[in-house]
Amino acid sequence: MTTYGYARCSTNENKQNINRQKRELKALGCVDEKNIYWEYESGTKVDRVELNRLLDQVQEGDTIVTTEVSRITRSTKQLCQIIEIVKEKQLKLVIGGFIVDCRNGELDAMTDGMLKMMGVFAEMERNMISERVKSGMANAVAKGKVIGRPITSIETLPSCFIKHYPKYKNAQINKTELARLCDVSRQSVYKYICIYEGKK
Rank of each mutant, 00 (worst) to 15 (best):
T3L: 05
T3Y: 03
Y4M: 07
Y4G: 08
G5H: 06
G5A: 13
Y6L: 07
Y6H: 05
Y6S: 05
C9R: 14
N14F: 07
N14T: 14
N14I: 06
K15M: 03
K15L: 14
I18P: 03
R20N: 15
Q21P: 04
R23H: 11
K26D: 05
G29D: 04
C30R: 01
V31D: 10
D32P: 07
K34Y: 02
K34Q: 13
K34C: 09
N35S: 06
I36W: 04
Y37K: 06
E39Y: 06
Y40R: 11
E41N: 14
S42Q: 09
S42D: 11
S42R: 05
S42K: 10
T44H: 02
V46D: 12
D47S: 11
D47L: 02
R48I: 09
E50F: 01
L51W: 06
N52T: 15
L54R: 00
L55A: 05
V58A: 10
E60Q: 13
G61A: 07
D62I: 00
D62W: 00
T63Q: 01
I64P: 01
I64V: 08
T66E: 08
E68A: 15
I72P: 00
I72F: 05
T76L: 07
T76C: 12
L79G: 12
C80G: 12
I82T: 03
I82R: 03
I85R: 03
I85T: 11
K87A: 06
E88W: 01
Q90A: 14
L93N: 04
V94I: 15
V94Y: 03
V94R: 06
R103D: 04
N104L: 03
L107I: 08
D108V: 03
D108M: 02
A109K: 11
T111Q: 02
T111L: 06
D112P: 01
G113N: 09
M114D: 07
M114P: 00
M118F: 13
N127I: 11
M128H: 08
S130L: 14
S130N: 15
S130P: 02
E131V: 15
R132K: 07
V133K: 03
S135M: 08
G136V: 08
A138C: 07
N139G: 07
A140S: 09
K143A: 12
G144T: 08
K145Q: 10
P150Y: 06
P150I: 14
T152Q: 06
I154Y: 00
E155R: 03
L157P: 02
L157V: 09
P158M: 12
P158S: 12
C160G: 00
I162W: 04
K163Q: 10
Y165V: 05
Y165S: 08
P166W: 11
K169Q: 08
K169N: 05
N170H: 13
N174V: 13
K175H: 06
T176C: 03
R180S: 12
R180M: 10
L181G: 02
D183R: 09
D183G: 00
V184H: 05
R186W: 00
Q187P: 00
Q187N: 13
S188A: 15
V189Q: 08
Y190M: 10
K191R: 15
K191L: 11
Y192V: 05
C194K: 15
I195A: 09
I195W: 06
I195F: 07
Y196N: 13
E197I: 01
G198K: 14
K199I: 00
K200A: 12
K200L: 10
